[in-house]
Each structure stands twice: as C-alpha cells, then as structure tokens.
Computed example of a mutant assay.
Amino acid sequence: MKELPTGNGARLIKSGLDPVRVPFDQIPVIDLEPMFSGDADAKAALAESLRHACTQVGFLYIKNHHFPKEALAAAFAEAEQFFAQPDEAKMKNHVSKSSNLRGYAAMLEENTDPTARGDLHESFDIALDVPADDPDVLAGKVLYGPNQWPEDRPSFRKALESYHAEMIKLSHHLLHAFALALGLEETYFDAMVTKPLATLRVLHYPPQFGEIDERQIGIGAHSDYECFTILAQQMGIPALQVLNAAGEWIAADPMEDCFVVNVGDQMARWTNDLFASTVHRAINRSGKERYSIPFFFGPNYDTIVEVLPSCVDEDHPAKYPPISSGDYVNGRFTATFASYAEQQKDAATVV
C-alpha cells in the first residue's frame, strides 16, 4: 500500500499495474433520458440510482445523454491531427504563454500523482472563453481568461469550441440530476454555475510496452478537482482504472454511446464525502495511440463550497472548511503543473 496525497486528504492504494476486470454493472450505468423528458417519476428513479452510484462507487456511465455524435467525432478527429504535428508546432501554443493554463502541455509536464515521476501524455486545454478585459480577469481571478489557439488550425478551434458548448448544456442537465440525488430542488445549484470553471482537455497517450514503472504511467493516480468530470473514451482502447473501497483497481473500459462520469473533490466537499470522489488513473497498454476527452465542470470562481446542511449532523460534523471554488482549483493546479506553479510564484513576487 502507498499513501496518495489529494486535495481532500490522503488515500491508501495498493501497488501494481493490473486492474480487476469486473462486469460493467459494477460500475453503474445511468440512463439520463428523464432529465430531458421532464417526467417527475422517472427523474425520481434516476435520482435514486445516481445517489446509489455516487455513494457506493463515485464512477458511473451515462447513456441517452443527447450529446451530438458529430461534435464528438469532430473533436476526436481534430485531436488526433493536432497531436500528430511536430513538437515545435504544438509548442507555439504552450501553456506557459497563457496566464490561466490554456494551451498545449508536452509529455511529462504534468504530474498528477505527487509520488510519481510525471505523466505519459500530452494535452491541449481550453475553458470558458473570458475576454482579457472582463472584470473578473482584471480582478485577478486567474482561472478566467481567453483561450489560446493555433493560428493555422481553424477547424481545431471550431471543433473544440463546439464540444465545450455542448458539454456545458449536458453538464447543466447532469447537475440537475445531482441536485435531485441530494434531495434538493432541481435548480438548487443553477445560480452557482452561471460562469463555471469548466475545462475541456484533449489528451494523447502513447502506448506503453514491456515492463512499466508504476511511477510513470499515462496519468498517475489522482482525484479530480471540480464537481464532476464527463469523459469520452475511444471504443476498443482500454486504459482507465478506478480505485474501489478495497484498494483494488477496477477497469472502466469504454462503452458504446456512453460517457464516463466521476464525482470530483468539490462535490465530495459539498456532500461531506457522502458522494465519493474516487481515485483513478490511466495506463495505455493497448498497443495503440489513445485519445480521450475529459470535461471538468465546477461552479463559478467565487462560489463558496461548504458542506450542505443536509449532509451534517451531530454524528457527522463537517469535514472540510469553506473555500471558494477558484481558490480550491487554483491550488490543485499549482500542485500539479510545474510551469503554472512558477507563473503563480512569479506573479506573487511582482505584486
């Protein structure tokens, strides 16, 4: 066993690279159709299933999510073409040229597991596109700001902006389901996500062969920082592994027409760990290049994330102090990305 630091405290995990292969029904499949149909009884049944998935597993698949297939296909196609470019072309939009962690990051630049040696993937990040003269940007809320784009790849920008916009729509439907699963009004969180910290990543994982150092894999063991993550995986290329309560790694292989959803740290803090923010990792031993597209959805920068009243009582006091969404996520990014940490350090020095 080893101890993995996360934003919500240390977690114990077993060593080894091989996941346990279990039937998919052990990672629940949730039918999201009732959130589009408006049927109250169907929504109530969905909420009960979602609550069970979030309390027992922290990971789930969603089907009937109404996400446009053409937007999904375009994003994967553009990601593959972007990452196939020479390094010097990709580095023109390196994250170091952005003050808010937008753009390209190369292999090993990210280290999600502080006990490891860097992640074997490259990425391109965008988020909510906020103009440089926006009051929140001028106020120094560092996770707001403009995206940066390759000047010679307009189709890449179009595909990712379209994907991001559609994910925002889906996230609102999913957040309504989360509210119902917590016994709240469906629109409880709406005022907190009018300007969300919503990051889209396209990722490329090269295959790993032979003996693999557990300290250097596609992406190291970690929990996500926001409310939830919606992940698109390519069919036939398994890599994602989820840590269960027994400290075993469970395979979360791609499922046709489904996204993977996992609870993030902020939702865990809101619910006093009633909803589990589950540790996960990715190891690409498929023999093929792997591309994935996670979307991280969290509340507005200034939203105070504190334990919901319904999730505390005399026997279950609040585990976490209140913290703003922006401060929490910014702190986790600083701990994960070395170049971003240097930027923040330099900015603090100037101030």
Rank of each mutant, 00 (worst) to 15 (best):
R269H: 08
P196V: 04
D87F: 14
R51F: 10
A132C: 07
L143E: 10
E109D: 14
N111H: 05
A79T: 08
P321D: 00
D39N: 14
P238K: 02
E226A: 06
T55L: 13
D136N: 13
G16D: 03
Y291T: 02
I27G: 00
I250R: 05
L308I: 11
L182R: 01
V350S: 09
D136K: 08
N64T: 00
Y291P: 04
E88L: 04
R269I: 14
V263I: 15
L197T: 07
P28T: 12
D327G: 12
A245Y: 04
P5Y: 04
A268V: 10
F24P: 09
R290I: 05
N330F: 00
E186M: 09
S49T: 11
I62F: 08
I217W: 00
I304M: 14
A276Q: 09
A105C: 12
D39Y: 13
L101I: 10
Q266A: 11
E70K: 12
L243K: 03
M267V: 07
L170V: 12
F178Y: 10
A84Q: 13
G9L: 08
N93S: 03
R215K: 15
Q148P: 02
T349M: 00
S49C: 08
P322Y: 02
E214D: 13
L182F: 01
D41T: 11
F297G: 04
V57H: 09
Q56W: 07
I293Y: 04
P196K: 03
E248V: 07
S292M: 01
E211W: 05
R201K: 08
P154A: 02
A198K: 00
F259H: 10
F275K: 07
A239S: 15
Y61C: 07
C311K: 00
S339F: 02
R153I: 06
D213E: 04
Q344I: 01
I230K: 03
Y188F: 15
E78H: 14
M255G: 09
